[in-house]
Amino acid sequence: MDRMEFRLLGSIDAGVGGRRLELGPRKRRYVLAALLLDLNRPVPVERLIDAVWDGAPPDSARITVQGHVYRLRRALCGARLETTSSGYVLMADPDEVDALRFRRLVAAARGTDDAAGADLLEEALGLWRGPALGGPGGGKELEMAAIELEEARLAAVEDLARRLLRLGRPERAVAPLRSVVSGAPHRERLVSLLMTAFSRVGRQAEALELYERTRRWLADELGVDPTPELRDTFTALLSPQP
């Protein structure tokens, strides 16, 4: 039997055997995301409503959610989505859900040596296709879940970069760091790591330019100076190497 694939690390999507499933409108995808985030556990209808609507839901919310579940059940071949006394439960192997697999791989990297951990983290980060849960949208519950996933991504990139720098593989740290620093210039630890990686692959000018761009952004947007850690990285880049 072909393996199902559920994707939350980017647009909310699903497929089977390489074929993309037709899930329907955005609100139906929010229902699916809420079920996937509580995979194999019953999810009350009220929580599904909270996942779909930001603010006061319409009077028809319960009936609308039931309709979305009915159509999801058909799209997912029926057997996976079950009705409980208070709501619904989606049954699947956690490794079929990219967000859950990501968390498993990141957890597996903890406590391993740098080489093994870096391989696991690169596999985990390779699952990302865009903003978690497709970016802004849905209710507060999905918004918080997306923020938590994005924070986990940034932490994984930082862990990966530190391991690669210790291993003497700065060239492999550049791409994952650049992918997140551009959207998170306030994460100065990541900026510092990217500056270091740039420097170690002979891209000193890019490292210095990144510092100046970050310094201006911090001043203009937040009214603060760079942290001592970032300033120390900058100073080290200016110091002649022995």
Rank of each mutant, 00 (worst) to 15 (best):
R3A: 14
F6H: 11
L8Y: 15
G10F: 03
I12H: 01
V16F: 00
G18N: 08
R19A: 13
L23S: 08
Y30E: 14
V31M: 03
R41K: 15
P42N: 05
V43G: 03
V45W: 06
D50L: 04
A51E: 12
D54Y: 07
D54C: 00
G55F: 09
A56F: 04
A56S: 13
A56V: 10
H68E: 12
V69G: 03
R73P: 04
R73G: 11
R74A: 14
L76N: 12
C77T: 08
G78Y: 11
A79C: 06
E82Q: 14
E82V: 09
T83C: 03
T84E: 02
S86G: 12
V89I: 14
M91I: 11
E96M: 11
D98H: 05
L100K: 05
F102P: 03
R104I: 05
A107T: 14
A109M: 13
R110T: 09
D113T: 09
A116H: 09
G117E: 12
L121S: 07
E122R: 15
A124G: 09
A124D: 14
L125H: 13
L127I: 06
R129I: 06
R129M: 07
G130D: 13
G135F: 04
P136C: 01
G137V: 06
G137M: 04
K140H: 06
L142M: 11
E143N: 07
M144N: 10
M144V: 11
A145R: 08
A146R: 14
I147V: 13
E150N: 00
E151A: 08
E151P: 01
A152E: 15
D159H: 09
L160E: 09
L160Q: 13
R166I: 07
R166L: 14
R169N: 04
R169I: 01
R169L: 10
P170T: 00
E171Y: 01
E171I: 07
A173C: 08
V174A: 01
A175Y: 03
L177F: 15
L177H: 09
S179D: 08
S182N: 05
L190I: 09
S192Y: 00
S199T: 06
S199R: 10
R200D: 07
R203Y: 04
A205W: 11
L208N: 01
E209I: 11
E212G: 00
E212V: 05
R215L: 12
W217K: 10
L218Q: 14
A219D: 14
D220V: 15
D220Y: 04
G223P: 10
V224M: 15
V224D: 13
D225P: 00
P228D: 10
L230W: 04
T233R: 15
A236K: 08
L237P: 00
L238Q: 09
Q241H: 11
